[in-house]
Design a protein around this nucleic acid. Structure first.
Length: 96
DNA sequence: ACCCTGACATTGA
DNA sequence: GTCAATGCCAGGG
């Protein structure tokens, strides 16, 4: 069955919206939940992530992306996410 | 169809 | 712990 690319984007957005406040997830985690590669998730958010809490999605090492890294750390800090040297503790606030 | 780029992940040095 | 190289997936020229 041919699933449209928009369907995959919807699944990604849905997973990101599911992330509880004060928690963060990774591109790889979202990718596995929706069944796509991590790059597909990154592209989906960069293309239309303005409608979801993209700031709750960080890299596998807990660091944020370049073009939004400062903003993401700021938003996460406002959510109560303990970051250390621009790197969040996935073992403490990581989701799932 | 081919080549390059990108909000990534993983492994090795 | 940090840096570099490789692999994966999709879009644009």
């Amino acid at each position: 069955m041919t699933r449209d690319p928009a369907d995959v984007d919807e699944a990604v957005f849905d997973a990101v919206e599911r992330i509880p406040p004060g928690r963060v997830s990774t591109y790889g985690a979202i990718g596995e939940l929706v069944g796509v590669g991590p790059r597909r998730v990154a592209r989906a958010l960069s293309h239309g992530g303005g409608a979801v809490p993209w700031f709750r999605v960080v890299r596998a090492d807990g660091s944020a992306a370049e073009p939004v890294r400062a903003r993401q750390l700021e938003l996460l800090a406002a959510e109560g996410v303990p970051a250390r040297n621009s790197r969040v503790d996935l073992g403490a606030v990581g989701w799932p």
